[in-house]
């Protein structure tokens, strides 16, 4: 399975760097939205909870663009070509890896840019960083399987958003609450939140791995 994974990852990365669709979408969305919110708020936002909500809304919508890696396979009729050589399981794990990498990059770009633009002080940088990484991992796992379903259904916008919302809600709730605490000068432990996010990601990842072959072959 390892060669199959590596070849699929190399293929996705190579195609992405040539087309630059996802990279352009994400970078422009991250930067434009973060800077726009910074200008629009005019430094008036003081509540850590509001900062946390805004931060994760930007990360969430920036990360949504990574679903293009599935749409491209369906739109360009390459999904069956890929299946002729590799198992659906290896295709899923490769896509999950690419999606996680994109989400990590998004959360790091937005996480740093937001602090700079909005002039937010982080009192618990380790907790903040761990929330960005574990939160983006959970979002990536959620959106990978949903993007596959939406791509196969050839419903780019509506279905993806509708399916994403209830599945990502527990993740978003936990990361917003814990990230807000990292903006406060009070002692707290993010351990339980990290544990929840890792457990959620693992469970959904396993379920997605089992379901993906049935989803991906129904086109």
């Amino acid at each position: 399975m390892l060669p199959a994974l590596l070849r699929n990852i190399v293929k996705d990365v190579r195609i992405e760097f040539r087309s630059r669709i996802v990279i352009s979408l994400i970078v422009s969305f991250c930067v434009i939205v973060t800077v726009s919110i910074g200008f629009a708020s005019g430094g008036m936002i003081e509540s850590p909870m509001v900062h946390s909500v805004l931060l994760w809304v930007i990360i969430f919508f920036s990360g949504m663009n990574s679903s293009h890696i599935f749409y491209r396979e369906i739109e360009e009729n390459t999904a069956l070509f890929n299946l002729m050589y590799y198992s659906p399981e290896s295709i899923f794990v490769a896509k999950l890896f690419v999606n996680c990498s994109i989400m990590f990059a998004v959360s790091i770009i937005v996480g740093v840019l937001y602090l700079f633009v909005m002039d937010v002080v982080v009192y618990h940088p380790l907790s903040y960083a761990s929330m960005l990484l574990s939160g983006s991992l959970s979002l990536a796992v959620c959106t990978t399987i949903i993007a596959a379903i939406a791509a196969v259904a050839q419903a780019r916008g509506g279905l993806f958003a509708i399916l994403s919302f209830p599945i990502t809600l527990p993740v978003i709730t936990v990361v917003i609450k814990t990230t807000a605490q990292s903006f406060l000068a009070v002692i707290f432990s993010p351990f339980s939140a990290i544990l929840f996010l890792l457990a959620f990601s693992s469970l959904l990842g396993v379920v997605s791995y089992i379901l993906f072959p049935y989803i991906w072959r129904e086109f």
């Binding site: 293929k11 190579r14 195609i15 040539r18 009729n77 069956l80 070509f81 002729m84």
Partner: peptide
Amino acid sequence: IVAPYIQCYNQL
């Protein structure tokens, strides 16, 4: 399979 609904990767 060789068919119109199966394409190689055009960006490669």
